[in-house]
Write a protein that binds this DNA or RNA. Structure first.
Lengths: 335, 335
DNA sequence: CTGTTAGCGCGTTCAG
DNA sequence: CTGAACGCGCTAACAG
């Protein structure tokens, strides 16, 4: 079943069939009906490969992600997926673990897709994935380097969290840092925001209050355990993501401390799990779905020849729930 | 940069370049070296589209998933992804929400991929996704209908869970059923396993002990709350997945009950989150990553002309953790 | 409005 | 071991 078969059956040329399947104008209604009937009758489907090879516009966009087992990534993809569906586009997801070489499958994307969205792309020397010489589809980068980048205000979000805890009366506020290999930039920015905010308030910040983590729940538990055993333990912990914040809550509970009464915990991300945990997590919300949605929108704009202003930095939002409360000074003063 | 350019630069024919890039034998080493040098120098990359269009074998496999925001699905994809990488294959993920029409992007898969793995595919009248007439790549189905299907022993797993609770001395064991729209077959099988096991032991099973859920944490919480407020509340709850089990734990805690002392809770799935929850969840482990891994292996076998014996049913495994304990009879007898 | 002529880039016959 | 010719299915130009 090729376009030629349909053309023969409808008594027209291949070109006319092509015009019909591509939804182009300028085909007489009765001719169109005849072609459509022939298509229906034969069960013909256009071959997207041949179409792409011949230079037709692609309605497929590609998205590369470091891993699909991180809920974080799933949220972004979900946002992109919805936006793509709304725009009548198809979305193909490729995993591209950071540090790994470029998967061969991506060569395909280059020829087949109308645009590429990369989540946390590895930091390539060259900004582009493809050899510069050849023409490539537009690409937008989420949280990584690139010509068109969509970012989240990690620095500002961290300052929000630190400011919130300080305003509650906490003076001993520790931070569990994110992994420095997975999303190094994000982790560094959150650390910087935390530091700057505390410094600006003249709060002491012992080295021991900055504890390394891996973004995994377990590392949050371990880090918090160590923090809480310090001679002068923190009364509040700001973790660089929700998973580690949950670990911190568990560490506190293991030591017989109550959250938020004895320890306040603030996370970062606001994944659905933040609401499924007891106590519900106070956290800095990242607009993850918006990230995916905007990425697809940008790709559409780029395809239309428009130039989004890059980089675009999305704001975060502090979501106060149950894992945070007043600092000890507020109580101690009264007692 | 086409194959012709490389051929010209290396002073050979296109055929020779093709032989080199396809790793075929019968090219003189020095010629091969010359070609490789020309490729390196020019930054040439084969166009997978043209290759596929010309009938070459594809190293790409496709996988369709209902959604990427369910951790359940992420695990399977992760397994498939690892197996694909090990086999030197590329994997493209497409979302295909159940109930939705076939995304156009899948037409592409048909022409481009060497095989298709479908997670929980919608129940099509016709077993195959494509029109039967045309040749299609092999497809294996995970948890859904199809010529080659990979399944999990949901029935057996549910019996394991019910038997375990009964062996602990529980006599009042309730079940929170999974969504009947999302993965109806799975939910029904788990319910059937639960029923059969309790019946075989002659345990009473009031209608009120079978409570509907949606697979979401919130529905587990609501269902458990209702169950625990029954005049004769259950002492154990078996939920059809981990998320609802977590909800049940929270419902119990909200009512001042201790888990597992006052209520035992068993889940289903054993997602990573089952270990990140307090108390750690006792649950029926599904080999999700194996599902993805096996799917890719089957696709490879099918490409080689072998016929896997279908359906293949993978066993589950009961993982005992902290959310389950002896039934009240054991204690009450002593007191 | 429709048909004709060229390719898109590569793999595959066949001869040499 | 290599080279020429042809075809995969479709679309972009240009005619008519």
């Amino acid at each position: 079943m090729t376009i030629a078969d349909v053309a023969r059956a409808a008594g027209v040329s291949k070109m006319t069939v092509s015009n019909v399947t591509s939804g182009r104008v300028g085909v007489r209604p009765e001719t169109r009906a005849r072609v459509l009937a022939a298509i229906e009758h034969s069960g013909y489907q256009v071959n997207p490969l041949a179409r792409a090879l011949a230079g037709g516009r692609s309605r497929l966009i590609g998205i590369t992600v470091p891993s699909l087992s991180w809920p974080y990534v799933g949220e972004i993809v979900q946002g992109a997926s919805q936006a793509a569906e709304a725009a009548g586009l198809d979305l193909a997801v490729f995993t591209w673990p950071s540090g790994q070489p470029l998967p061969d499958g991506l060569a395909l994307l280059r020829h087949l897709t109308g645009g590429l969205l990369s989540i946390l792309p590895p930091d390539l020397e060259d900004e582009s994935i493809w050899p510069r010489s050849a023409p490539s589809p537009p690409q937008v980068s989420v949280g990584g380097p690139g010509r068109y980048q969509l970012l989240v205000d990690n620095y500002g979000g961290a300052r929000q969290a630190a400011a919130y805890l300080a305003d509650l009366g906490h003076t001993r506020i520790a931070h569990i840092v994110g992994a420095t290999d997975t999303a190094p930039h994000d982790a560094a920015e959150r650390l910087r925001g935390y530091r700057d905010e505390l410094h600006s308030r003249g709060l002491a910040l012992p080295d021991a209050y900055v504890s390394p983590g891996t973004y995994h729940e377990r590392s949050g538990l371990d880090a918090a355990q160590a923090l809480l055993r310090l001679p002068d333990p923190p009364t509040a912990i700001f973790a660089a993501n929700d998973a580690m914040a949950v670990g911190a809550v568990h560490a506190a509970q293991d030591l017989g401390l109550r959250v938020p009464h004895d320890l306040s915990v603030v996370g970062f991300d606001d994944l659905p799990s933040a609401r499924a945990v007891r106590p519900n997590l106070t956290t800095v919300r990242q607009p993850l779905r918006d990230l995916g949605r905007l990425g697809v929108l940008w790709l559409g704009a780029l395809a239309r020849g428009e130039q989004p202003s890059s980089p675009h930095i999305l704001p975060t939002e502090l979501v106060v729930r149950e894992s945070s409360g007043p600092g000890p000074s507020r109580f101690k003063g009264v007692l």
